[in-house]
Amino acid sequence: MDTGTHVVMGIAIGGLATLDPVIANDPVMKQSVMVAAIIGSQAPDFDTVLKLRNNATYIRNHRGITHSIPALLIWPFIIVGGIAMLTPEVNYLHLWLWTFLAVFLHVFVDIFNAYGTQALRPFSHRWVALGVINIFDPFIFLSHVVAIFIWGYGMAEPGITFLILYFILAFYYVWRISAKRKVVHHAKSLMPNATHVFVSPTMNYNKWHLVIRTPEKMQVAQSKNHEIHFFETYPFEPIPDDPVITAARVDKNLSAFLSFSPAYRWEKETLENGNLEVRFIDLRYRSKGHYPFVAIVQLNEDLQVMSSYTGWVFSEEKLQQKLSLATQ
């Protein structure tokens, strides 16, 4: 989810914690748990700092080890340890448990996005991406804001307020899972030989981006108001054993892209200056006829990488600018 949603979820966990008598009866614990829950709700995304290094490192590692099973246990210890240095009189066990819940909830809700996480590490490096909830979901965010408002203005106790909120959100998630299943079932009814349907939700509850893969092709489509509209069709074929593409795959940017994207097409061309260009395009994020998530590698005639880039680009002009910067 987005940062704002994780923040309001942290506040909600801090309010929900007042149902715990150990916390409800101790002002210091109330404050400590609130601080720990807000930090814990953000902690798994601290790997965003990797953007300062380069996009390849960020794409390959974001939502990886920081969202893993060991991290679920380690983050609370780090956060509680820091808070305990300032307020040593806190109840460590109860503070750790509520901090753990904040961290766990962060990772749990991220699984429902199309981006997903490597939440099963170290047992599996597979990306778990259910494609049910958009990165930013207005209902989830605004319902938290309303609950915080109700609490802040003293209209209800925080514990019961947020408990009711999460019961409502549980039913909301069930509804979204059901809606996604209906979209997948509809897509497979139109293309019975489909082997996989990649689904990316949008902020419009009745609109979903689709990539329908069969043994022969990948069909880019959109489900809107219970109707599926088909767009581009591309052949589904393995990456060829081609010297140019093989040389490009060694590049860190393309390697990071391939570690993340499950539905893409590739193309190769010779540029006017004689250099070669290999371009991989993720098909899941079609927007206004454009595919913004790409990886590009440019090589010279000796198959040496001259420049490369991976990430989100919404115009060819911007992409060329980024490639020019990469060669400097």
Rank of each mutant, 00 (worst) to 15 (best):
G14Y: 02
V8E: 04
S189R: 09
I133A: 06
A170C: 09
S307G: 00
N275Q: 08
E227R: 14
Q320N: 15
L303S: 10
A119M: 06
M203L: 12
T5H: 06
N134E: 14
F108C: 05
S255C: 15
T161I: 02
G274L: 03
I135R: 03
S124T: 07
D242K: 11
K30P: 05
Y205D: 12
A84T: 14
F100K: 04
D2G: 03
I79E: 02
G274T: 07
M85E: 10
I281A: 08
G289H: 09
L120A: 11
K30L: 03
H62W: 04
L299R: 03
Y291N: 10
G15H: 07
S255M: 14
Y264H: 10
E272P: 07
S308R: 00
V49D: 10
F100T: 08
K188L: 12
T5D: 00
E237G: 11
A221F: 09
P158G: 04
L276Y: 06
K268W: 03
V22E: 14
D242I: 04
K51P: 09
A170W: 07
V297S: 01
F257P: 00
H6F: 04
V49R: 02
A102M: 08
Q328P: 07
F231E: 00
E89D: 12
I177E: 08
Y205E: 13
T99P: 01
L16G: 04
D2F: 00
S287T: 14
V103R: 04
G14N: 03
L163I: 10
G4N: 13
A256S: 09
V33Q: 07
H196F: 13
L276P: 05
V109C: 01
F260M: 02
S41G: 15
V146Q: 03
H125N: 13
N113Y: 01
T117V: 11
A248R: 02
I150C: 06
I69Q: 03
Y172R: 10
D137Q: 03
G159M: 05
F46W: 11
M34P: 07
E227A: 15
S261G: 12
A263Y: 01
G82I: 14
N55A: 07
G81Y: 09
V35Q: 05
V174G: 13
A119T: 12
G154K: 00
P21G: 06
F280D: 00
V197G: 05
A102L: 05
F139A: 10
D20A: 15
S223R: 04
E317P: 01
V250N: 13
R213P: 05
A17Q: 06
L72P: 08
L52T: 11
M306E: 11
R279K: 15
I74C: 10
Y58P: 10
I133T: 02
V294M: 09
L120Y: 01
D137T: 01
V146N: 05
I79H: 00
T202H: 08
P70F: 04
E216I: 14
T310H: 08
K252L: 12
S143I: 07
R53I: 15
Y173E: 01
I83R: 04
A170V: 08
Y58H: 13
S200C: 14
A248D: 02
G40P: 04
D110L: 08
F112Q: 03
H226C: 08
E237Q: 14
Q219N: 11
I239T: 12
